[in-house]
Design a protein around this nucleic acid. Structure first.
Length: 461
DNA sequence: TGAGTTCTTG
DNA sequence: TAAAATGGGG
DNA sequence: CCCCATTTTACAAGAACTCA
């Protein structure tokens, strides 16, 4: 489906099951069942569903579907269980990743045997050493598996996984390869217990493992592997979102001495000659990278905080920090006592943040980025407003439940839309409240979408 | 200790 | 992991 | 025009760890 030319996609024998409806105008849906019935009535195919009152029936149903799996004209990997009552759903809400009102019952994944050719050690952004099994490639549920993570030292020891072993592999959730166990019957006579390296495989410095911790870590902050991974993290989509610079460009540029550390990304023009002289690097590639780097100077504070790669400061915690401080300088100048006062930040993370900014190198990094022109301050609400209404013309009518007309207008304009007085062909949306009159009729006649205040708010959120 | 996040992997 | 888009270079 | 390398993106889980 992912085609630039829709005609190409249209040629493919595609079909759709609709499984959810996000918002409807002029209808109040109380349950998920209602919404599916409505979709059916409107002519959409919906996935098969059933409503249960009793959890035991739900379990029975999952078992039943499991047995039906092979008979279906399409592949499934499980059954989705959702709370039917929409108001109850709202009460449960979401974590930052998942709804709390739905879960999936997954069928046991297909298991296949293959051989562990070698166990390689990778060094991550934080210095953690993670062992990865390189396998003789095998097909499992539709794709080729050639590697699988072994997590850590203990995991290997517990399952006694050795190079040369025949192992049972499966794809958890049909995606992530996992080594389930060793087939001991097929163990060769001269396999050796895997010895986890005590040195960083990249920089050779001693790798320590703290009491009670799972990972052995390379503590050398200048370890090339770590520097590289930190840079990948910095440019990544959820961090500074520098497009067209990925893992392999970073690696090649580092090998060529074009970049050594993160701030060098902002000085590509100094190395333009060298970049262009590289294989498969032309003016266009250079310019694209340059433009992306330039654009990254305008990212909001929370992205910057996340991009720094402070231990345990992921996306969520970065946002929490950015809500509590207006700039990176304020964060750098703060203390662990202050961090601890913030909800969701405890003693451990507070200490990590403080320690991070006590490192000279990290302060230098922040200063260098600031100097390069990277934004390190929280943007004002009006500049960070979304542009969801860009180019859209609105007309207001009736009395809105909570907003005054002026407030609604301000909100629409803040998000890039415009408001006009009367409904015409050019109108994109009618925002209608109580006692909407002729404008509403006109909008209906012209087939213009009619929004409630609630839907408008939903949109800008 | 349960819930949620981070970190890592293909 | 797979697949499409993109640009470089032959 | 074709081949190739690179990026991007969706998919997703499990282990480790923190917070409260």
């Amino acid at each position: 489906m992912r085609q630039l030319d829709p005609k190409l996609a249209a040629q493919r024998p595609l079909d759709i099951f609709v499984f959810s409806i996000e918002s409807v105008q002029g209808q109040s849906l109380k349950t998920h069942e209602d919404s599916l019935r409505l979709l059916e009535k409107l002519g959409f195919k919906v996935g098969e569903f059933q409503v249960f009152e009793d959890m035991n029936r739900v379990i029975e149903h999952c078992e039943k579907v499991k047995n039906l799996r092979g008979d279906l004209p399409f592949e499934i990997d499980g059954v989705v269980l959702k709370l039917n009552d929409l108001s109850q759903r709202e009460k449960l809400g979401y974590t930052s990743k998942n709804p709390k009102w739905a879960t999936a019952f997954k069928f046991p994944p297909e298991e296949v045997e293959t051989m562990v050719r070698s166990i390689e050690i990778q060094v991550g952004r934080t210095g953690n050493l993670t062992p990865v099994a390189h396998l003789t490639p095998v097909q499992i549920s539709g794709s080729t598996v050639s590697k699988a993570t072994l997590h850590n030292e203990d995991y290997i020891a517990e399952k006694d996984i050795r190079e040369g072993d025949v192992v049972v592999v499966r794809k958890a959730g049909e995606i992530i390869p996992e080594v389930v166990r060793v087939n001991m019957d097929k163990r060769g006579p001269d396999t050796k217990v895997f010895e986890f390296p005590k040195k960083c495989p990249v920089c050779g410095s001693a790798a320590y493992r703290n009491e009670g911790e799972a990972y052995r870590q390379c503590l050398n902050a200048s370890c090339p592997a770590q520097v590289r991974r930190k840079m990948e993290h910095f440019v990544s989509k959820k961090a500074m979102q520098i497009e067209h610079i990925g893992a392999s460009i970073i690696e090649r540029f580092m090998d060529q001495g074009i970049i050594e550390e993160i701030p060098d990304l902002y000085r590509l023009e100094e190395k333009k000659e060298k970049i262009l002289s590289m294989d498969r690097m032309g003016e266009k590639s250079y310019q694209r990278m340059k433009d992306s780097v330039e654009a990254s100077k305008q990212r909001d504070l929370h992205r910057f905080v996340y991009a720094l790669g402070i231990p345990y400061v992921g996306e969520k915690t970065a946002k929490v920090l950015a809500e509590n401080y207006d700039s990176i300088d304020e964060i750098v100048g703060s203390s662990k006592e202050a961090f601890e006062q913030i909800d969701e930040i405890g003693t451990v993370i507070a200490k990590e943040i403080e320690a991070f900014f006590q490192e000279e190198r990290n302060v230098v990094l922040v200063e260098a980025l600031k100097k390069a022109g990277v934004n390190t301050e929280k943007k004002k609400t009006n500049t960070q407003a979304s542009r969801v209404f860009e180019g859209k013309k609105f007309v207001l009518t009736g009395t809105l439940p909570t907003l005054t007309r002026d407030q609604a207008k301000e909100l629409i304009e803040k998000h890039g839309g415009s408001v006009s007085g009367s409904v015409s062909q050019k109108t994109d949306y009618l925002l209608a409240g109580e006692k909407a009159g002729s404008k509403r009729d006109k909008a209906l006649e012209l087939g213009i979408d009619i929004l409630t205040e609630e839907q408008l708010m939903e949109w800008v959120r």
